[in-house]
Design a protein around this nucleic acid. Structure first.
Lengths: 252, 252
DNA sequence: CTAGAAGTTGACGCAGCGTCAAGGTCAACC
DNA sequence: GGTTGACCTTGACGCTGCGTCAACTTCTAG
């Protein structure tokens, strides 16, 4: 008994295209190919197709199925590995959902996307700094810390940041020197603010690298337009940078 | 202030290839393109990229992001839709996991893949018969019924089926006539067995179509090699078919 | 001036087929 | 024996979001 490609496809509830695909990838070659090029499938092929479709319905990929059918792996091991992969995927999605919910709640609580610019910069640009200089782990720690905060805590943190920014702006407008006592106290406050973040050198008591970080973060304000804008103008940003770098040089 | 593609890429933590991709799909065109073809990005582009990356990290697709940025949808609506999609995906995977676990348990309980041939045939081949003759709904009902059973119930059902097969084989070997009383009582038993499945005409008391079904199922045994093999040889399968069809003609 | 870094535009690859397109075969009917 | 219509074949593009060469031009620093 033999079936044409369409007959088998109809029987199996798939399309002939899929069968040709299985042929092409070597998963299910037809048992016979006519002189006209027609594919014919016999009972062996039907049985094999059944096993293929069983695993396909379970969501396994074609290469994984091929491995099982080649007896390189036991079917049970294949399924167990598949379950593990599925569970990991489910957990990943679960985390995604929580993350999106978090963001959505923040938005609905009135946080405009642009308001996040500071922390966005913190997460993006700062990430580059942190990652390239102190490694991915440091950033992970800081990132987890941030996402572990409640919305209220995040808002409080943001408030503190905004207050700090406002103080910087006022100082810059007042025309004082970046090395003046007031500017330096602001710098100290800025460093304390930064040091709250775990994973940073300051938080870990690494003095050498703390100095480096503060200098780097200072430079960030001038180079990055989002920060430049935040401090009113380029002059404001330069003021912050100079104050921070002076602080790092002389008082850390 | 302006950045080249690499500078922006480094800053954003992505590759220049991704930025070119965003350009190509119209998601983030560079703010300026030099006479040399170089792409340059300004602060506006940076801000847009930040929003893009924020949504990307949340797992949204590029078209969905484009919609939000085009202000065709509110960001909150976009996120809510995204959550819904994620939840659906998670539930789908959850069902997959249960399904695979079920299969795995069946395998570990000693059911060899090949031992499932009968029910596999029942699920596949029979599906064609059922679906093409009585519609997809009927098959769904039967399928749900099967997957709703516990492993023990499935084993019990399988045992009953195997006993029935064994009885058929013995009868066929004994050389009796398909219309003999014994063969007909087996046919009756076979029909009762089939009628346990909801969604089939027999279960629903549809006499006309029950007769048709029993005839069809009978033919199935001869045409399908998996069943032919199950009844020892082609002669055995023909015996079953003839007995069933005679039963359908004369006693239903 | 030259090397090297960085820019550009293709184009393939991945997963698993769906979906034309263009053309050969086969079974059946007139 | 010719026509029709159903079914077969091999290509090839499309989808998602870029990674990864490849081949070539342009900028930058010594």
């Amino acid at each position: 008994m033999e079936w044409t490609i369409q007959e088998l496809a109809a029987r199996a509830g798939i399309t002939s295209r899929a069968l040709r695909h299985y042929d092409r990838v070597g998963l299910l070659p037809p048992s016979r190919v006519g002189a006209n090029g027609y594919r014919y499938y016999d009972a062996t092929a039907v049985a094999r197709l059944q096993r293929i479709l069983l695993m396909r319905r379970l969501g396994m990929g074609l290469p994984a199925i091929a491995e099982v059918l080649a007896d390189e792996v036991d079917a049970r091991d294949g399924l167990r590995a598949h379950i593990a992969a599925l569970e990991e995927e489910r957990d990943r999605i679960e985390r995604q959902i929580r993350s999106v919910r978090h963001t959505l709640e923040a938005l609905e609580a009135g946080a405009e996307p642009q308001m996040d610019v500071m922390l966005a910069g913190f997460n993006d640009h700062y990430k580059d700094e942190v990652v390239s200089r102190w490694g991915e782990r440091a950033f992970q720690v800081g990132n987890d810390w941030w996402h572990g905060k409640t919305l209220d805590e995040q808002r409080a943190w943001k408030r503190a940041a905004e207050d700090l920014v406002a103080a910087w702006v006022a100082a810059a407008k007042a025309g004082i020197s970046p090395t003046s006592e007031h500017a330096q106290s602001l710098a100290a406050r800025h460093v304390r603010w930064l040091s709250q973040i775990p994973g940073t050198p300051t938080a870990e008591g690494d003095r050498e690298r703390s100095i480096e970080m503060v200098k780097g973060v200072g430079g960030m304000f001038v180079e990055d337009p989002r920060f430049t804008g935040m401090y009113e103008d380029a002059a404001g940003a330069r003021f912050v940078r100079d104050a921070l770098q002076a602080y790092a040089r002389t008082r850390m």
